[in-house]
Each structure stands twice: as C-alpha cells, then as structure tokens.
Amino acid sequence: MLTRREIIAAAGLALIAGPAHAQGGYSDRPIRILVGYPAGGGVDIVARLFAEPMKAALGQSVIVENRAGASAMIAASAVAKSPPDGLTLLMAASGEVAINQHLYRDKMSYDPLRELAPVALVGIVPCVVVVAAQTPVRTAAELIAYARANRGKLSFSSSGIGNPQQLAGELMNSMAGTDVLHVPYRGSAPAVTDVATGAVTMSFSSLAAALPLIQDGRLRAVAVTSRERMPQLPDVAPLAEAAPELKSYELLNWFGLFATAATPESIVARLNEIVATGLRDKRPPRSSKSRASCRES
C-alpha cells in the first residue's frame, strides 16, 4: 500500500528522474488533470503530487483542476468526452470508474470502461473496521462471532451510500451471513465519531479518519479489509482470517490515473512510466509513525 509519505517521496524521485521537453507524442499545450473532489482531499493531493514530476518529465505545464460534484462524475464525464490526445486526464477514485455505473445507470453520461483509458494505478487503500472501546470485541474473529450472535441488532456506518466502505460492510454481511445494518453519513468524521458515541456499532472507515479516535482510546480497530495486515496496524487481522467463509474476503479502495479512450498508446505508456517511476521501489522505509494514505475521496 502506498502511504502519503511514500507518494511524496516517489513524486520527488520522478521529479529528479524526469528531463525533457514535450515528449511521448504530446503537443506542448498544457495538460489538465481533472479531479472530481474538492481541493485538499486525498485524490486532489495525489493529483498535485504527480503533476510536478509529470511536468518535469514531459516538459510542459500540468494543471490540476477540481470539478467536484455528482459523485465525481462531472470530472469523469469531462475526461470521457475530451479529445483523445492525453491533454485531459482524470485522477479518479474507484467510485467514479468502477462503482457509480452500478448505482447511477440512468444518470451517467459516460461509460467508464468504454470511454476512459486506464493509465496507471496509483494507490490501494484498505478500510479498517472500528468499534467503540467498550464493545466486547477485540479481534476480527470476535467481530464476526458478535455479529452472528446479534443478527439484526447491529449497525455499521460509512461515509456515504455506495462508497467502498459500504461495499466492504455489505460484502462482510453476504459472505459471513451477518445482518449488520448500514447507516450512511455525509463524510467519514461523523461516521466514526458516532461509533465512539455508541450511535452505531462499528464503522468501515479509512484509517486516516479513524486514527485520531483510535489513538485517544475511544475506538478500537478490530479488522482490516485487505488480505494482508496493514503496516500501520500490525496486530489487526484481516476479515479474511475471521472465519472460513471469509477466506476470500477483500474489499479495497483505490485510485489511479485515466485518459480519454483511444488516446494513443505511446502517450498512455509514457504517462504510465512517469507514474511508475514515481512509485517504484525506492520508497522510504516504513516507520511506526508513518500514517496510512487511507482517505476519503
């Protein structure tokens, strides 16, 4: 998993590595990276981190443009409908390219799988499952046992309908045979705060949102949604280890770079190379203080 710290370091490496003037089949007009979320959010930060090395490598201006709204579909649609010249790119979370088509079939103005060209995966972010400190659950296995013993009585919060956090909870219900009611919130902060107050039993959350409450002892992390443990939470088991029925459980949030479909392969390959250079194995050593890049889009 790529942490924010690693992304910053990787972006710096790409900056050092990149020479050049308008390369890879590009014109010398500015490149725009559209983001479907407000400035300062996780996807926006990643887009800005990669704008600099892209600028250095390609020798032309790279501008990040926030077009927030409509579950990030305004930005995604704009890229889908742009000329396929690599000058209009999308830094996307999984929602606008892999989930929204299942939720907004009649309202979507673009087909993400047909009208967007995947360029590079930038980051993968597991969710963490948290409960209130007084909840009698300390492990992933205990969480599933508790949910099975209290069918129909428990609830989980997420930062909104149809986001990966909700899907993570619903996948647990489906695979484990539990019946934990989803309670959507507008954003991750109230979603985790209401676990601490006891209004909801648990939350599927980004680590970034839950960490302050974990650190002050109000919340307990009891599971993660990746197959592997998170470096930041080495003592917290994956849900996949909680019960035999969950052996194949995994639900990840992720984000990455897209171009318009039919963008020349040479441009897509060059952009992929720039991102890969930034992410490659010259990552700084992880430290116990490093924070996850778990983020709300």
Binding site: P112, P118, L167
Partner: peptide
C-alpha cells in the same frame, strides 16, 4: 502495473463492485 494490467484490474473490480451492489440492493441517493 502496465496500462493493460490496470485495465484488467479496473474491469475486475467493477464486476466485483457490481455484484455487491446488486446483492445488497444498494440504491443511489436522489
């Protein structure tokens, strides 16, 4: 991950998310 591998990943994830949305009968907010 190459662009082709990334395309396969996105397609696979979209299928998986679609199955979960359908199974849980998740409806979008209006």
């Amino acid at each position: 991950m190459s662009p082709a591998q990334y395309r396969d990943f996105v397609t696979s994830e979209a299928e998986k998310f679609g199955r979960i949305v359908a199974q849980a009968n998740i409806k979008a907010e209006n």
